[in-house]
């Protein structure tokens, strides 16, 4: 079915048009507010150091310093860092989505002794500030010889993330019981129910999970700063460390780098968000 989720009946048609125009206006206004810091950042990257520090504020630069963008791409090995970060984020996103879907399914649809306490415990682990776990985790991984490698991300991906588990659990919990019952009547085991029946129904959540996980690793600074070193670190850390001159950060170059930094994930998101609108949810009982 391809009908929109929120339909407007014919009686509201005229009011709907006016309402729609108002809505678009509001959206455009809000979008401008949201974009303002980013646009300002891009303009800042185009300005020279002394112009950015002037009290005479102009929106457009007096003389565009494209050199900052050039420096952003050349002062560090931008291409290489982009590729490695992309791979790291991608692998983590896929692994964590897969494992969290499994665990979330378990919490939502299966019974077991200790399920509720276990869920609460899982939730409780999100209440532990990262600052607490970071040094002991480093020590553990160091003893295992895993620091300065990408293995911690693989392990974290396999171990599932409470955030994503919770997300899947909520998604699965909302699906009707009848789907399962029909499948059991047909003689399906639970993994098959998971894989073939319920998982396809939460496709938007899968996309969400992948995007959020990817974005998280892409933008994460603290973890790579500690667990990786200068050579194999992520793009974000490389940028923060590399745009320096005599130890002092060049903020205009950093701003330019940030513009490039957000582009890949932006494109990824734009492509992926279409799956949110694909009509997936049906009431379908198979067969």
């Amino acid at each position: 079915m391809t009908t929109p989720k929120l339909t407007l009946s014919n009686r509201d048609a005229l009011g709907a048009r006016r309402g729609r125009r108002l809505m678009y206006a509001a959206l455009v206004l809000l979008a401008l507010v949201f974009l303002a810091p980013l646009v300002w950042n891009a303009l800042y990257a185009l300005k020279s150091r002394s112009e950015s520090a002037s009290t005479d504020v102009h929106v457009l630069p007096q003389s565009a310093e494209w050199g900052n963008f050039h420096r952003a791409l050349t002062m560090i090995d931008f291409g290489r860092y982009t590729v490695t970060t992309f791979m790291l984020a991608g692998i983590f996103a896929l692994l964590v989505t897969a494992s969290s879907a499994l665990v979330g399914f378990g919490f939502a649809r299966l019974r077991g002794r200790g399920r509720k306490p276990l869920f609460t415990l899982m939730l409780a682990t999100t209440m532990v500030p990262q600052i607490l776990t970071v040094i002991p985790t480093y020590v553990i991984f160091s003893k295992l010889g895993l620091v300065n490698t990408y293995w911690p991300w693989v392990l974290w991906g396999l171990a599932a993330s409470p955030f994503h588990v919770f997300l899947f659990r909520q998604a699965f919990a909302g699906l009707p019981r009848e789907l399962e019952e029909a499948a059991i009547l047909d003689g399906c085991g639970y993994f098959r129910i998971f894989w073939q029946i319920l998982l396809p129904l939460v496709r938007p959540v899968i996309a969400t999970s992948i995007i959020l996980a990817f974005t998280f690793v892409w933008g994460d600074f603290i973890t790579p700063a500690i667990f990786l070193n200068g050579d194999n670190t992520t793009l974000g850390v490389a940028m923060a460390a590399g745009y320096t001159d005599g130890g002092i950060t060049l903020n205009n170059v950093l701003a330019a780098g940030t513009v490039f930094y957000v582009l890949p994930v932006l494109v990824l998101f734009f492509v992926a968000q279409r799956s949110f609108t694909r009509g997936v949810a049906t009431s379908g009982l198979k067969g």
Binding site: P37, L38, W40, T215, F221, G236, L254, Y261, F269, F276
Partner: peptide, 22 residues
């Protein structure tokens, strides 16, 4: 959707810097 999601894509360090600049 992309516009509103965009800030989440920017790493925290950069977002704070942007706000300071603004």
């Amino acid at each position: 959707r992309t516009i509103f999601y965009l800030p989440s894509v920017v790493p925290v360090v950069a977002t704070a810097l942007m706000f300071k600049l603004v």
